[in-house]
Amino acid sequence: MPQELSEAEAPEPASVGHSAQERFEEFVRRYEKRLFALAYHYTGNHDRAEEIAQEAFLKAYLGFDRFRGEAQVFTWLYRIVVNLCIDDRRKRKPVEVPIDDLPISDGFDPDRSEREMVLREALDQLAEPLRVCLIMHDMDGFSYQEMARILRFPLGTVMSRMNSARRKMRRILESQYPELRPKVKR
């Protein structure tokens, strides 16, 4: 039995009494944070993540009338974001960001900054299907069921992929960044 999404996640039906514009605004408010987070974790770039999220909303708006009743707008929206992220990645050659150019935010923590660099480099080495699973679940909190729907993978594939992704990620960290890898408690 497919698991239903939580109330907060469930989209409003194309209800009466709301104009398309109002529904769209509500739509943006509801999903902007999570969409941005997904795009950010995928791209590692604040500006591109905002662009991708914005682009996804535009596409969603244009396709709004295709969703009648049963259609799952949010699934589609996240799928758009994933596809845009993959497109974005394919279009961009890997860019080496000098450590000096990394943004320094308030409460700058050098360890965290280094870890984020390592994270990006390690994620870049994962195959696309593994990377997307790892980001969606471990970093953005999507359930397996949601991922299966959004990515159109069978649920079993999501399970095996999560397994492979974590193991592969760990191998990368162990071999390339031994000082930063997570330590297993014995």
Binding site: E116, D138, M139, R170, P182
Partner: peptide, 21 residues
């Protein structure tokens, strides 16, 4: 052991920073 490693890996990823949009 595999499970313990996966758990550590997951916790490590979960703790990674997400900037505010």
């Amino acid at each position: 052991r595999n499970l313990a490693e996966q758990e550590e890996m997951r916790d490590w990823l979960v703790s990674c920073h997400t900037p505010a949009h």
